[in-house]
Design a protein around this nucleic acid. Structure first.
Lengths: 353, 353
DNA sequence: GTGAAAGCGCTAACAA
DNA sequence: TTGTTAGCGCTTTCAC
């Protein structure tokens, strides 16, 4: 077996095909103005030599880097990994994003960044300078961060914002959290619940507002009172326990609760169990996110399933399309979440709340 | 806010500090032969301008790419992600690998490859040619693949093999599967079990052999018979069911079972439940891997916890050390797995098997 | 200890 | 339609 120490470059291909470097470059990049015959010859040489362009060199030459970065919140991501509860967000992002990237010869790099503004500027600058990615995918809670957006604009980097409805530069993609909350609320109303509690997420996440709004609007349409039925957590388990306690210990507790994420839903389940409140007999429970863990609880939890893989794949596609000069849609892209029913919901005792 | 369209390069730093490009380069790379005074001046300029070296350019210049690749089995990884059971392997690799990479200014890129030999050569070639990684981390079942090793050697790329004991080039890292299986077996023996079944993994994974060997050796030391107590699965749930059935339906079924991964352990739990066999009353159960899911079952499963994050961090460290010319250890690196007890084990009914 | 030169593999702008 | 010429930002020689 020959030791090919020297990797083969565009030069070798050009020599083998008997054409200029530029022609090879044109073939590689699928550019026009190459006769089919030439193209075939070059491609034959590429095949034969097993040539693959160097991304570093392509970058240097001033074109694409074939790198797409995802920006994820460092603390939250690491905490999720450490807890080993199954980090659905990152997993599903990789599933959707990496596979789509691979289709186009791109790579996805996960970049963890600090939430604090001054850190984020430094970290993102460094990542951009070092990697020169072709595109960046923003995830909550960074999706609508104006500082990040401006930096990306300055550097002429395409970007997508997952979980965002804001207009402006960059592609906005949403799973329509408001609609998702509505679905959950309507399901409970249909079961004849009248006192439906809601545990909101932290306000630095735009989606927290949308989810709460969806619940609030649906309750209003059904002429149901929401007095004492809203509590706020920060997505953590501890905050979920507090919120659940607040709702359940009130003067007129809910017969159903929707929690804005899995962790808080699990906390609610715990609190209910401690108080001898049966789920779903005494209390129906619906969760947001549908991470692996909610399928294993007793009872398994109904949940809003977020199509993170799909939305990430779309984000990648949009970035690549834009870079390639293909037309891209205008408004926000909507990939709808769905409600997955399991055995955590039931009619309230007595048939009405 | 100024629009810095043109990113700042080593030239700007050199100009600002009033030195040559070369001197700046030396400072960046911490090379000798720079007077402290010069060094300080250059570093001040770097700070001031917020300069970050371009990885692409560094690569081009013929030095490090600051990229480390992990090679993971495509089908298995995607299947895990799709099932959404919490993909512990990849998560934990990222946790350990990314954080360690970040410490040294490296990035980790997850590369999915096909198991088939001819595909793997093509895919790895392409990845190497495109990315020119400084190092590659091999995971089972690719850790001892001689074709991969030879390619990496040919390209002078450092590599680490996770879950390998083989000598030869590349760093071998192991979680000592044999010892882990011994721990599990000994725990059961101490509980007075005498018929301890073992569900092995597929033979294309070297670690399957080690785990089985650990169980076998421990049984032998305790003078316990293993007749009819070994079944083999392929890490899938279906195979786990078959294996469990094979063991439990035998003439003299085990009072305890060790399964070589979580999925097969869960399958065993299911099969037991179907047959009315109580865990841990009638059957003790220990799992390998300790993925999130086994904490949520009823009962939660005792499991061998694989320190994947730590072992990946070590692998990254070894690669970076080698690249930096620092001394690296000789033999295989051992990061020991531990046995996590939960409520799935108990003495056998009647005190003896 | 420092600097000037050449070149890494590729693409953009130009010329033919 | 094709080929030629400059760079891209950095690191490596090898002088000084």
């Amino acid at each position: 077996m020959a030791r090919k120490k020297q990797s083969i470059t565009i030069k070798h291909v050009a020599a083998d095909a008997g054409v200029s470097l530029q022609t090879v470059s044109r073939v590689i990049n699928n550019e026009p103005n190459v006769r089919p015959e030439m193209k075939a010859r070059v491609q034959a040489a590429i095949e034969k030599l097993g040539y693959v362009p160097s991304i570093a060199a392509q970058r240097m030459g001033g074109s694409r880097s074939y790198l797409i970065l995802t920006l994820n919140d460092r603390d939250r991501t690491i905490a999720d990994w450490r807890e080993r509860q199954g980090t659905d967000w990152v997993d599903q992002m990789m599933l959707g994003g990496m596979l789509k990237c691979a289709e186009y010869g791109y790579r996805l790099i996960v970049e963890l960044v600090d939430t604090h503004s001054d850190h984020i500027v430094r970290e993102l600058s460094a990542a951009i300078a070092a990697l020169r990615p072709d595109g960046v995918i923003l995830t909550p809670p960074h999706s609508d961060n104006p500082v990040i957006a401006q930096m990306l604009i300055d550097h002429h980097i395409s970007f997508a914002r997952i979980g965002s409805l804001a207009e402006g530069p960059g592609f906005a993609l949403t799973m329509d959290d408001e609609r998702a909350a509505r679905l959950a609320t309507e399901h409970l109303i249909k079961l004849r619940h009248r006192r439906i509690g809601f545990i909101a997420g932290p306000s630095d996440y735009a989606l927290s507002g949308w989810r709460t709004a969806g619940w609030r609007a649906t309750m209003k349409s059904a002429r149901l009172d929401i007095e004492g039925l809203l509590a706020e957590g920060d997505f953590s388990s501890a905050s979920g326990r507090l919120a659940a306690a607040q709702l359940l210990d009130g003067p007129s507790p809910p017969t159903a609760i929707i929690a804005s994420n899995d962790r808080m839903a699990l906390a609610t389940l715990e609190v209910a169990r401690e108080r001898g409140i049966e789920v779903p007999g005494d209390l129906s429970l619906i969760s947001f996110d549908d991470a692996p863990i909610v399928r294993q609880t007793h009872p398994p939890l109904a949940a809003v399933n977020q199509p993170i893989a799909e939305v990430t794949a779309r984000a990648v596609e949009l970035i690549i399309d834009e870079r390639a000069g293909r037309p891209t849609p205008d408004g926000p892209i909507v990939v709808e979440a769905s409600l997955v029913l399991r055995s955590s919901t039931a009619p309230p005792r007595g048939g009405t709340g």
